[in-house]
Design a protein around this nucleic acid. Structure first.
Lengths: 318, 318
DNA sequence: AAAAATAGTTGACAAAGTCAAATAAATTAG
DNA sequence: CTAATTTATTTGACTTTGTCAACTATTTTT
């Protein structure tokens, strides 16, 4: 352990002492409630785990099984939670919050939020940003992975100022990082967006943005070209949020919209190296109808056009 | 409490849960020692306070007087500490570590250091630095010390993929928020970027990006139109980072570059509502040379052209 | 000199957490 | 198919940790 490391260690230890106090301060309201810290964490985890059993809580919270057992018993007596014995495995009991339990937790959450609000509200806006970014940095570094939690992702289809810029940013950044496209690609995306705006109409065109923590992490759009023909465009996902079904969710939203709007033909343009996206397109029924070479973006690529025919009257059948 | 704040609160709460676990992990070695966490903190504080009494420890550690009294008694029995009654005030007892106590604490410290070393040793050097910087940021913010924000901002003039997208994002977002421009403005910025890329040349064109926490929070660019004439474009600052001289820094960089490149005339286009920016432009010597009306972006605006003449041979005089 | 305040101590207690043994259901080995 | 083993949870007995109020000793205030 060299002296540089010792320096880091000292700073980290000081931070730990400091943050222990902050956490203590924030948890004080819990001491004033009828619940212990462990109990609140149990309530919280029951709410946030999809399937919750005592076993899982023991692992997650590193709590003593006997201790937990009694907490659960007390919660059940107070009808904050109820238990359902698993039909497949009689040893397991699934835990659920009752309405009363949800209510109680929600009040505790509100208190907790207030405490944190008090802590940060007096900070100038840019310091808030710095603090939050710093926390993300620490968390990412120590957990070894970018944070991704699917439940925190929201999808909205309203187009807001700044959205298309961010969309271009994502395209420029990740096509360069992953496919080695050059800067001309980002310029090309700018042009497609500009052209779109010249004909933009909320009645025929639609964007969807997936957001996590208030930041756009994915997008897709449908642009109408005629009453029956539309184009699917700008389908992209931040790499940290792939593989969790989010791409399919966006794609399905887009196709559903086409059906509802009565578009009979949807086409899209992509390049042959977008293997995963192409698989997803084909899964929902897109077929390749044309291809040609493109060298504009620093690599030799095959640009491909895919088309999806939507059966007329599909809406009626639903 | 608005939704932006709620987002911050969620991130902070997640960080708190996460860091509670980290702290728990780090404290585990203490559980394996013969001391409780409170006891270790008492030992630590006796060592680190110049003059230590029970009273001070009670205030510092927010520990129960009775509880502390017993801890001190035990420590004295184990001859980890010794007490000296104050000659001025017989109610006070000054607390000191014995050699044995110092030794014990030092071993505990070593354990603690090792734990932290394990935590950070597997991180790449860059991450270690950013973790430590982030911790300092959080600590400063919460302890009321203002964050020296300008120290955390870096300016780079290299154009990277994703940059112009983010630049468009900033324009779309903040011109809408602050000047009520409509979405067409963002489309217009896309077009200006696209046009620029069609003639982009690193020898004549240059971008500067101000970054805080790895995120772009400001930009400016110089685009050459001929050997002697250039345009200043895309000057924008995230509102949270205004008023700290950053705008002038960027503007000066841009003008300096023009001088170095031998541009004799620099012009820029803006709108009459950009009062603060215009003042900055005029401060460095820009003069209004033309104006005309523009209604494209949802408001009646006066578009203005400013021009700066750079004296020939200015470089020589330096 | 009496009353009030302060620093620390003590006893009685409650809350939080631990450990090992017990129970009940599932899985595996023979 | 039964016995042995494993797994999820529970229970009893216990320790540790932390709290509260009453107490002593000393100093400060009135």
């Amino acid at each position: 352990m060299n002296s540089r490391n010792m320096n880091l260690i000292h700073i980290i230890r000081r931070f730990n002492r400091f943050y222990t106090n902050i956490l203590g301060l924030l948890d004080k309201h819990i001491y004033e409630s009828e619940f212990s810290l462990a109990e609140v964490r149990v309530l919280y985890d029951i709410e946030h785990m999809e399937v919750c059993t005592a076993k899982k809580l023991i692992e997650e919270l590193k709590i003593d099984p006997g201790y937990l057992s009694r907490i659960i018993k007390r919660f059940e007596n107070d009808s904050l939670i109820y238990r359902v014995q698993s039909p497949e495995d009689g040893r397991l009991y699934y835990l659920f919050l009752t309405d009363k339990g949800k209510n109680t937790l929600s009040k505790l959450n509100d208190l907790s939020n207030d405490q944190i609000y008090n802590l940060i509200s007096r900070l100038p806006e840019r310091d808030k940003m710095s603090v939050v970014e710093s926390m993300k940095t620490v968390e990412n570094a120590f957990s070894g992975k970018p944070i991704k939690i699917k439940e925190k992702i929201t999808i909205r289809s309203e187009l807001r100022p700044g959205d298309v810029g961010y969309l271009i940013h994502l395209h420029g950044r990740f096509y360069a990082e992953e496919c080695k496209y050059n800067y001309m690609f980002e310029g090309y995306v700018c042009k497609t967006i500009f052209d779109m705006f010249n004909n933009y109409n909320v009645e025929k065109d639609r964007f969807w943005f997936a957001e996590a923590n208030g930041e756009i992490i994915g997008s897709i759009a449908i642009i109408g070209h005629s009453a029956t023909r539309a184009q699917l465009r700008w389908f992209i996902l931040h790499p940290s949020f792939r593989g969790i079904g989010l791409g399919n969710t966006l794609l399905n939203e887009a196709v559903k919209y086409c059906q509802e709007k009565g578009y009979e033909q949807v086409f899209l343009e992509t390049t042959d190296d977008q293997k995963i996206a192409i698989k997803m397109y084909m899964n929902v029924g897109f077929k390749k109808v044309a291809e040609h070479e493109n060298k504009e973006w620093g690599r030799k690529l095959i640009e491909q056009t895919y088309e999806l025919s939507l059966p007329l009257g599909n809406m009626v059948s639903n």
